[in-house]
Simulated scan of single mutants.
Amino acid sequence: MKGSAVFLALIDRITEGVGAVIRWLTLFMVLLTFAIVVLRYGFNIGWIAMQESVLYLHGLVFMLGAAYTLKADGHVRVDIFYQNYSAKQKALVNLVGTLVLLLPVVIFVFVASYDYVLTSWRIAEKSSEAGGLPFVYLSKTYLWLFAITLGLQGIAECLRNINILLASDDDRGEQGENQREEEATL
């Protein structure tokens, strides 16, 4: 169990780091969008590359933000029954959902996008717009980043839920206390 706790902590730290980067990228994206609007409508100046960079940032925020949202338990959930479940019942539902839904979808996204992304890299795909950004292949790579980061966080959630299912009631209370203290320090 100690090895899984170290692995779990490592994945959580990576996801938290990605979440921190996403927060700053979101702020930068908003400021860049504001600048585009001011330049376009205030000064009649427009740059395709600047506009495309907002699309790249937007894609990055959503694709990388999915793993952080999973860790923060921020995904949409219909919890008519779930809210009344015990901690072990919730852990079982989360474990089954991750194994049956999340991880297969993540694997499918990675496999289905593999040739698509590689081809884009092979031809060094560029924007079709005159004055656009010359690295569309980076934007397409977000599919892999999405699958990898969400898959890793899904594995972490599986380990977390297995630990809850295997823990005795006394251990679970102590784990919950430790996790709340850890989250308070973040």
Rank of each mutant, 00 (worst) to 15 (best):
S113W: 10
V6Q: 03
W47H: 12
L152W: 05
V117D: 10
E183W: 09
E174K: 09
N84A: 12
A5S: 08
Q83D: 11
A9V: 02
T26E: 01
D170G: 06
L32T: 11
A130E: 14
L103R: 10
L101E: 05
A66S: 10
L165V: 01
L103M: 13
P134T: 14
Q175N: 07
L102M: 15
S168V: 04
D79H: 03
L32G: 04
G74H: 00
F135V: 15
V18E: 05
Q175Y: 11
V105D: 09
W24R: 06
I45T: 09
D79K: 00
I155V: 15
V30A: 13
E177P: 02
A72S: 14
L70N: 01
F43E: 00
F108I: 12
G97T: 06
G97P: 08
S113F: 15
L60M: 11
L31Y: 02
V6L: 09
I107V: 15
L143D: 05
L101W: 10
Y56S: 04
L8V: 00
T26C: 09
V18C: 00
I123E: 14
L152D: 04
L95I: 06
M29T: 13
S4D: 06
S168A: 05
D73T: 02
I155W: 02
L186C: 14
K126V: 11
L95R: 03
I107G: 13
M1F: 07
E129W: 11
F43R: 05
F43D: 00
V30Q: 03
M1P: 03
V78D: 00
A67D: 04
T185G: 07
S127D: 11
R23P: 03
Q51F: 12
L159M: 11
L133H: 08
T69R: 00
G17I: 03
F34P: 09
V6P: 01
F7A: 15
G19H: 01
V100A: 13
R122N: 15
I45Y: 13
N163E: 10
I107E: 08
W47D: 12
G19P: 06
K126Y: 12
H58W: 07
E181T: 09
H75R: 05
E181H: 09
R23V: 14
G173A: 13
G59L: 00
L70D: 03
L133N: 13
A9W: 05
Q179V: 13
S113G: 15
D115E: 10
V78T: 10
Y56L: 08
T185Q: 15
S168R: 05
E125T: 13
R122A: 15
Q153E: 15
W24N: 06
L55C: 07
G65N: 01
F81E: 01
I14R: 01
V105K: 06
V136G: 03
